[in-house]
C-alpha cells in the first residue's frame, strides 16, 4: 500500500471516530446513571446518579479525545526523529 493512502486511512480512523466515541461515551455514562437510578435504587436516588453518570460520560468523552491527540503527537514525534 502506498504511503499516502495508508496515511489517509490512519487519519480517517483516528479522527473519523472522534464524534462517535464522544457521543458513545456520553450515552454510556448517562445510560449507566439512569440504570442505577431506576433499576438498582428503584428511583429513590433519582436524579443524582443520572447527573453523576452524565458528568463521568462527558469526562470520558474528553479523555478519549485527549488520548487520540496525545497518541498522534507521540507517533508524529517518533516519525520526525526517524527522518
Amino acid at each position: 500500500m502506498s504511503d499516502v493512502k495508508s496515511e489517509f486511512i490512519h487519519l480517517l480512523a483516528n479522527y473519523g471516530h472522534i464524534g462517535f466515541t464522544f457521543v458513545g461515551s456520553i450515552l454510556v455514562g448517562m445510560g449507566g446513571g439512569i440504570l442505577l437510578d431506576q433499576k438498582v435504587f428503584d428511583g429513590r436516588t433519582a436524579p443524582w446518579f443520572t447527573f453523576i453518570g452524565l458528568a463521568f460520560g462527558i469526562a470520558a468523552g474528553y479523555k478519549t479525545l485527549l488520548e487520540i491527540i496525545w497518541r498522534n503527537n507521540k507517533t508524529e514525534k517518533k516519525s520526525d526523529n526517524e527522518d
Binding site: H17, F20, T21, V23, G24, S25, L27, V28, G29, G32, F56, G57, A59, A60, G61, K63, T64
Partner: peptide
C-alpha cells in the same frame, strides 16, 4: 469510571 465508560463506548462507536 471514566476508563470503564470509555471502554464501553468503543462498543457503541
Amino acid at each position: 469510571p471514566i476508563e470503564i465508560i470509555s471502554n464501553f463506548a468503543r462498543l457503541i462507536s
